[in-house]
């Protein structure tokens, strides 16, 4: 008797309350379906993104990979001023060559630009760094006609 009177008197409150509860339930269902399971494991982001970024391919094989095969050149280089210049600093990215050396043969670097980019005289370069004004120094001659790039000292 009491319950019936309550329902009759407050129906205008009960009906929207049911709608609200249903909407909240729907929100929770949609939310759990849309948000990835591990979201928030390390912070407010999707941890799967870390794996996706890690899975990107590499282009530079790295010094250790080059030296594993080309130990002769590595020895020559280690004896000279270019000892701390990595192979791929001049030869470019060669991870593909490391994966399949016969199918991906690298081109020889273009000496004219390559040497000048580091060694052309420039007031902004550190004082102690070896640099020459190429026009006066070699007058258009290729650098490697005198210097051996792996160990450039004459």
């Amino acid at each position: 008797m009491v319950l019936r009177r309550f329902l009759r008197d407050s129906g205008h409150l009960v009906r929207p309350a049911i709608v609200l509860l249903a909407a909240m339930g729907l929100f929770l269902v949609v939310r759990s379906a849309v948000i990835p399971k591990a979201f928030g494991q390390y912070g407010h982001y999707r941890p799967g993104a870390l794996d996706a970024i890690r899975a990107r391919p590499i282009s530079f094989a790295g010094q250790d990979t080059c030296v594993a095969c080309h130990d002769e050149q590595a020895k020559v280089r280690a004896a000279g001023k270019h000892a701390h210049v990595a192979c791929e600093a001049c030869h470019g990215p060669l991870a593909k060559h490391a994966d399949d050396p016969t199918a991906n043969v690298p081109k020889r670097p273009e000496v004219a630009n390559l040497c000048r980019r580091c060694h052309e005289k420039d007031a902004a370069k550190p004082q102690g760094f070896p640099q020459v004004a190429t026009v006066e120094h070699s007058a258009g001659m290729a650098c490697n006609s005198c210097h051996q790039p792996h160990n450039p000292h004459l």
Partner: peptide
């Protein structure tokens, strides 16, 4: 490995 920029930095 190191980064590509560090790998190729000659100095």
């Amino acid at each position: 490995l190191t980064t590509a920029c560090c790998e190729s930095c000659p100095t």
